[in-house]
Simulated scan of single mutants.
Amino acid sequence: MNEYPIEYYQFFIKFNEGDYYTCHDLLEDMWMEDKSNLFLKGLLQMSVAIYHYSYGNVKGTRLMMKVAHEYLQPYRPKQWGLDLESVIAYIEHCISIIPDDIDKVSFSKIEELPALPTLFLYLEDD
Rank of each mutant, 00 (worst) to 15 (best):
residue 1 M to I: 15
residue 2 N to A: 08
residue 5 P to T: 04
residue 6 I to W: 04
residue 7 E to G: 05
residue 7 E to K: 09
residue 8 Y to A: 15
residue 8 Y to R: 13
residue 8 Y to C: 11
residue 9 Y to R: 00
residue 9 Y to M: 05
residue 10 Q to I: 04
residue 11 F to R: 00
residue 11 F to A: 02
residue 12 F to K: 03
residue 13 I to Q: 09
residue 13 I to V: 12
residue 15 F to M: 03
residue 15 F to A: 04
residue 15 F to K: 01
residue 16 N to A: 11
residue 16 N to R: 06
residue 17 E to R: 00
residue 18 G to M: 07
residue 19 D to V: 10
residue 20 Y to W: 11
residue 20 Y to I: 10
residue 22 T to W: 01
residue 23 C to T: 13
residue 24 H to M: 12
residue 25 D to K: 04
residue 26 L to E: 05
residue 27 L to G: 09
residue 27 L to R: 08
residue 28 E to N: 11
residue 29 D to S: 14
residue 29 D to N: 14
residue 30 M to R: 00
residue 30 M to D: 05
residue 33 E to V: 10
residue 33 E to G: 14
residue 33 E to P: 00
residue 34 D to I: 02
residue 35 K to C: 03
residue 38 L to D: 06
residue 40 L to G: 02
residue 41 K to D: 03
residue 44 L to N: 07
residue 45 Q to A: 11
residue 49 A to V: 06
residue 49 A to N: 05
residue 50 I to R: 00
residue 52 H to S: 12
residue 53 Y to I: 10
residue 54 S to V: 02
residue 56 G to H: 06
residue 56 G to M: 09
residue 57 N to C: 06
residue 60 G to R: 12
residue 60 G to F: 15
residue 61 T to A: 13
residue 61 T to H: 15
residue 62 R to N: 08
residue 63 L to N: 11
residue 65 M to G: 08
residue 66 K to C: 11
residue 66 K to Q: 15
residue 66 K to A: 10
residue 67 V to R: 07
residue 67 V to H: 14
residue 68 A to V: 08
residue 68 A to Q: 06
residue 69 H to P: 00
residue 69 H to R: 11
residue 70 E to G: 07
residue 71 Y to Q: 05
residue 71 Y to D: 11
residue 71 Y to I: 00
residue 73 Q to G: 01
residue 74 P to C: 02
residue 74 P to Q: 07
residue 75 Y to Q: 04
residue 79 Q to L: 10
residue 79 Q to M: 08
residue 80 W to C: 12
residue 81 G to H: 02
residue 82 L to P: 08
residue 85 E to H: 12
residue 87 V to L: 07
residue 88 I to F: 13
residue 89 A to F: 10
residue 90 Y to M: 01
residue 90 Y to R: 05
residue 90 Y to E: 04
residue 90 Y to H: 13
residue 90 Y to I: 02
residue 91 I to W: 07
residue 91 I to G: 03
residue 92 E to H: 03
residue 92 E to P: 03
residue 93 H to M: 13
residue 93 H to D: 13
residue 94 C to Y: 03
residue 95 I to P: 01
residue 98 I to F: 08
residue 101 D to V: 10
residue 102 I to N: 04
residue 102 I to L: 09
residue 102 I to H: 02
residue 105 V to Q: 02
residue 105 V to L: 03
residue 105 V to N: 03
residue 105 V to F: 05
residue 106 S to C: 12
residue 107 F to P: 01
residue 107 F to L: 14
residue 108 S to K: 14
residue 109 K to R: 13
residue 109 K to T: 10
residue 110 I to G: 00
residue 112 E to D: 13
residue 112 E to P: 04
residue 112 E to K: 11
residue 114 P to S: 10
residue 115 A to M: 14
residue 115 A to G: 15
residue 116 L to H: 01
residue 118 T to E: 07
residue 119 L to V: 04
residue 119 L to Q: 07
residue 120 F to V: 09
residue 120 F to I: 11
residue 120 F to M: 14
residue 120 F to P: 00
residue 121 L to K: 09
residue 121 L to T: 02
residue 121 L to Q: 08
residue 122 Y to W: 11
residue 123 L to T: 04
